[in-house]
């Protein structure tokens, strides 16, 4: 399989503090990779490097054949091809759901209003929220907002999707409605890199699990070996804590 996302020896510093150290991994086309680890381990920073929301100082990231860090890379164009879903949804509160779904399609991809609307509503329907098209984000629950955010990213026809703790800000009863959408997406063959603590989701859906600690990728293996017998002591501790409840 060819790599959709290739991360090679990525290093990143905030001033003197090194947040990422020699991170290397690959995500193949159609592969679902869950990135987990304690807070402050650099997992969110790593996936934000993939679409250049965070710059990195050393190493290389290649997404669908395009080098993210290269000075000549057209970043908006690259980002338009990589969907991202955020912990706090980040819908645009001043716009209706419809406008949230269409704005980047028309402004970035140059689609007509009608075309963008059709596509947007199709994905809104897929996440089960077509009836809310005319509302503003503030009128929706957290789970609904996150599903709209996923639809917004999908409407751009991305080649890969990045999820940055998509369920961490949700009330427990809303987590599943978001995970269900993600599971469906994974089953359709979307390339996905998900930072999440939802180990049930990882077990069911992921192909591989990456465990990070203190800016290092400590463990990077298929999910069976990760949940079966993680090699590093740090990952064992993390799992035992997170799986207890």
């Amino acid at each position: 399989m060819s790599a959709m996302i290739s991360i090679q020896n990525v290093n990143k510093w905030y001033g003197d503090f090194q947040v990422l150290t020699d991170c290397s991994t690959q995500v193949a086309k159609g592969e679902v990779v869950v990135v987990c680890g304690p807070s402050g381990s650099g997992k969110s920073t790593l996936i934000k490097c993939v679409n250049a929301l965070e710059p990195f100082q050393k190493g290389e990231i290649i997404v669908d054949g395009i080098s993210v860090g290269a000075p000549k890379t057209n970043l908006p164009k690259l980002r338009a091809r990589v969907g991202m879903v955020f912990q706090h949804f980040e819908l645009f509160p001043h716009l209706t759901i419809t406008d949230n779904l269409t704005i980047a399609q028309t402004k970035v991809l140059g689609r007509s209003k009608e075309e963008a609307m059709e596509k947007g509503l199709m994905y809104l329907d897929r996440v089960g929220l077509k009836a809310h098209a005319h509302k503003h984000p503030g009128q929706l629950s957290g789970g609904q907002q996150q599903r709209v955010a996923i639809a917004r990213a999908l409407a751009m026809d991305p080649v890969a999707m990045l999820f940055d703790e998509p369920t961490s800000a949700l009330d427990p009863e809303m987590i599943n409605e978001v995970l269900d959408v993600m599971t469906e997406l994974a089953q359709e063959g979307m390339t996905m890199m998900c930072v999440t603590h939802e180990m049930g989701f990882a077990r069911r859906v992921a192909h591989r699990v990456i465990f990070m600690d203190k800016g290092h990728i400590v463990e990077d293996c298929d999910k069976e070996s990760f949940f079966g017998s993680p090699r590093s002591e740090r990952a064992q501790q993390f799992l035992s804590k997170i799986l207890q409840h």
Binding site: L53, K77, R79, F86, H88, E90, F92
Partner: peptide, 23 residues
């Protein structure tokens, strides 16, 4: 305006000025 709004605009492929103007 929260930094996350910038991230969201940029992640959708909007440029700096477009994110400023529309978001």
């Amino acid at each position: 305006v929260d930094r996350g709004q910038w991230d969201a605009g940029l992640s959708l492929g909007l440029g700096w000025w477009q994110t400023m103007r529309f978001v």
